[in-house]
């Protein structure tokens, strides 16, 4: 497969996941700061923007609706929801021939909807808008799943998705909702990952500590760091089987070490250990991201002709 194609597949995976996880997190975070003003909207907005690494202008007054505008963002900033969706769509456009028509259409439609919504001066009923975005992103996931041949392109997309997922889970954990909103925070964290149901079915007692442990270490929830790192490792091994064994060595080691550290941690680690593991997840996924670029999308830089 062309490196250029592979890179676009990988980034579609990352951007769609980023958009989805950010939208979900924003919907829940917005709910908390609207309902419970113990944390000032400024502080509530700041922690989320920091976690998502969205730069802010110093003189913005942070009402909850301003936070929504910032995180939904502008299409030029790929840390924002609309920016990530737009970037995914642009990548899809560039490799349109390699994607099923359904995938491009699904991405294109959510991009158009979203850019229309953020172009309006005020975003009314943001929670409802975000639910609509999530619904459409679920369609994107769905059509990718049932129309993509399980070839290299799909593997790169899946690798991007899982590395981003680990990254986003770490960012969510960095906000510490359970400390700022002790009553509603734990449930909001679970909702922000779509993990409420899985958590409750596991008969876990609801507490911030339990929720954090669950999001990092749960073996059954596919979006926990452990679940994601398993998928990442499987994906890299699959790439290897597809004939990339020369390129995958370091990458496999990085994701494999992360997976086994999470897999074989103690059965009930203390909160500090959980946080340390979350941090190592973030480190490993960042490192793996760089290794993917180096191994597969090696660029020799722009050729500048001087006359």
């Amino acid at each position: 497969m062309l490196s250029r194609l592979a890179e676009s597949f990988y980034w579609i995976g990352r951007y769609v996941e980023r958009a989805e996880a950010s939208a979900r997190l924003l919907a829940e975070h917005h709910q908390l700061i609207v309902e419970d003003k113990r944390i000032t909207p400024e502080r509530g907005a700041q922690v989320l923007l920091e976690a998502l690494m969205i730069p802010t202008e110093a003189d913005v007054e942070f009402t909850p609706s301003e936070l929504v505008r910032q995180v939904l963002g502008d299409p030029e900033d790929t840390s924002s929801v609309s920016g990530a969706v737009h970037a995914a769509r642009e990548n899809a456009r560039a490799i349109r021939d390699a994607l099923s028509a359904d995938v491009f259409e699904a991405l294109n439609s959510v991009d158009m909807r979203l850019s229309l919504a953020v172009s309006k001066p005020d975003i009314r009923s943001p929670g409802v808008l975000l639910y609509g975005v999530l619904e459409r992103l679920a369609v994107v996931h769905g059509v990718i799943d049932w129309t993509s041949p399980r070839d290299e392109g799909y593997l790169f997309l899946r690798l991007g998705r899982t590395l981003e997922r680990i990254d986003m889970t770490a960012r969510l954990l960095a906000v510490h909702h359970e400390q700022m909103w002790p009553e509603s925070g734990p449930v909001a964290m679970l909702r922000a990952t779509g993990g409420l149901h899985a958590f409750l079915r596991g008969r876990n007692p609801m507490s911030g500590e339990q929720v954090r442990g669950f999001l990092v270490l749960d073996p059954l929830f596919p979006r926990s760091m452990l679940g994601s790192s398993r998928i990442a490792e499987d994906t890299v091994r699959a790439l290897e089987r597809q004939g990339s064994e020369d390129s995958t060595g370091r990458l496999l080691r990085t994701v494999g070490l992360l997976r086994s550290a999470l897999e074989f941690s103690s059965s009930s680690p203390d909160p500090a250990t959980v946080d340390a593991m979350a941090e190592s997840g973030l480190v490993s996924s960042t490192q793996a991201g760089m290794e993917v670029s180096e191994a597969f999308f090696r660029q020799v830089g722009t050729t500048v002709w001087s006359h």
């Binding site: 920091e50 690494m53 960095a174 510490h176 400390q179 002790p182 500090a272 340390a276 960042t286 760089m290």
Partner: peptide, 21 residues
């Protein structure tokens, strides 16, 4: 419960080292 400032020991926010790529 005492409201913490949103950080915990050991894992303080997102370190600048871990920028997104």
């Amino acid at each position: 419960p005492a409201v913490a400032d949103g950080t915990a020991e050991g894992f303080i926010g997102i370190d600048r080292r871990y920028r997104r790529q």
